[in-house]
Amino acid sequence: MGCNLRDLATAHPLDLGEFSGQRVAVDVFLNAYQFITSLTGADGKPLSYKGQPVAHLMGFLDRATWMLENGIEPVFIFDGRPHELKMETLAGRRIRKDNANAKWEAAIEAEDMALAKKLGPQTAEYTREMVAQTKRLFDCLGLVWIEAPMEAEGAGAVRCANGEVAAVASQDWDTLLYGSPVMIRNLTSHGRRKFGRMVVAEKIVLAELLENHNITREQLVDLAIMIGTDFHPGIRGIGPKTGLKLIREHGTMEAVAEVKDFEMPEDIETIRGLFHNHPIHPEPLPESTKAGEERLREFLQGEFGFSERRLERALKRLANANHLKSDSQPTLFDF
């Protein structure tokens, strides 16, 4: 999840109409994990059909068609190959997941389904097969998806800065470090209840954050490195508030290191470069097409047992958004 900048950012409740008629980049992996950890069965594992997980498809079908009905065109971005500096972070996540799996298996063996339900989401995996299925769903929906060279939120941020999308929808605060002018949190959870409270999408504007704290983006990146990112664990004893005070007083991480007597990261320029010059593929984003009803039915009902009610709700939203075609029964929208 990268660096937590929540304490420094001002989040504004999102007016969906603000992004009507515009493209918004969506970080696929974080949203996929949201779906497979919330749409679970009695054992805490993702909802499935004949042994195949379907929670990711349910979640993306519902939220993608909801966005289209609200005038927002999602552009889905998948993570690419992680940088070598992130490997330590990923290894730590793997260890935590293995530990959770062992506890979950013990709970199942003890027939403690309440504990299994609680532990299940901690064991969630978004497998390569599930990734491929998600891409097929987007193809059936006529929606654009791309694979980033490295970090999805990084690629989205660069394309937002370039004007190709209006915002980046992600839970990862690193989106701002990569330079996205606008970040949207909770977009795919908007209007849902979580822990008894209604979730509302929030907009965070990078320029506002920088102005409010009287810092530059370069200083924000240095601040984040001191707090801790996916590429560096951070400096012990420095959190967001302390780090902000230090970076405003001394200007750079090097100057702070001199005053506080800590060693600079060996790969500091590489880390800075990952945030300031994150790679993207040179090709422009392709255009979306209309969803194919027959393809959706064959894929979701034929292969994954989706109910008619669930599919009809999605088809109605697509029709309302003028984003649906039927090969066998053309509608007025097709002409």
Results as ranks from 00 to 15, higher is better:
I215E: 05
I215K: 07
T216F: 03
T216S: 14
T216D: 01
R217F: 00
E218M: 07
E218K: 13
D222I: 03
D222L: 03
L223F: 03
A224Q: 03
M226H: 05
I227P: 00
G228D: 00
G228E: 00
D230T: 01
F231W: 00
P233F: 01
G234C: 03
G234D: 03
I235L: 00
I235F: 02
I235C: 01
G237F: 07
G239A: 08
P240L: 02
P240A: 04
K241I: 09
K241E: 07
K241G: 04
T242F: 08
G243W: 03
L244M: 09
K245V: 11
I247G: 09
E249K: 15
H250P: 08
G251Y: 09
T252M: 00
M253C: 04
M253Y: 04
M253T: 03
A255R: 13
V256S: 05
A257N: 03
A257E: 02
E258M: 14
V259Q: 14
V259F: 09
D261S: 15
E263C: 11
E263Q: 14
M264Y: 06
P265V: 05
E266Q: 13
E266S: 11
D267M: 05
D267R: 06
D267N: 04
E269N: 12
T270R: 06
T270C: 01
T270E: 04
I271S: 00
R272I: 02
R272H: 02
L274W: 01
N277D: 11
H278V: 01
P279A: 04
I280C: 05
I280V: 13
I280Y: 05
H281A: 15
E283V: 06
E283F: 07
E283L: 10
L285S: 12
P286N: 03
P286Y: 04
S288G: 13
K290D: 11
K290W: 13
A291Q: 07
A291N: 08
G292L: 07
G292T: 09
E293Q: 12
E294M: 12
E294K: 14
L296W: 10
L296E: 10
L296D: 10
L296N: 11
R297A: 05
E298D: 13
F299D: 12
F299I: 10
L300T: 12
L300N: 10
Q301M: 13
Q301S: 12
G302T: 11
E303W: 13
F304Y: 15
F304M: 14
S307C: 05
S307G: 08
E308F: 11
E308K: 08
R309K: 11
R309A: 13
R310C: 10
L311D: 07
L311F: 06
R313F: 10
K316H: 15
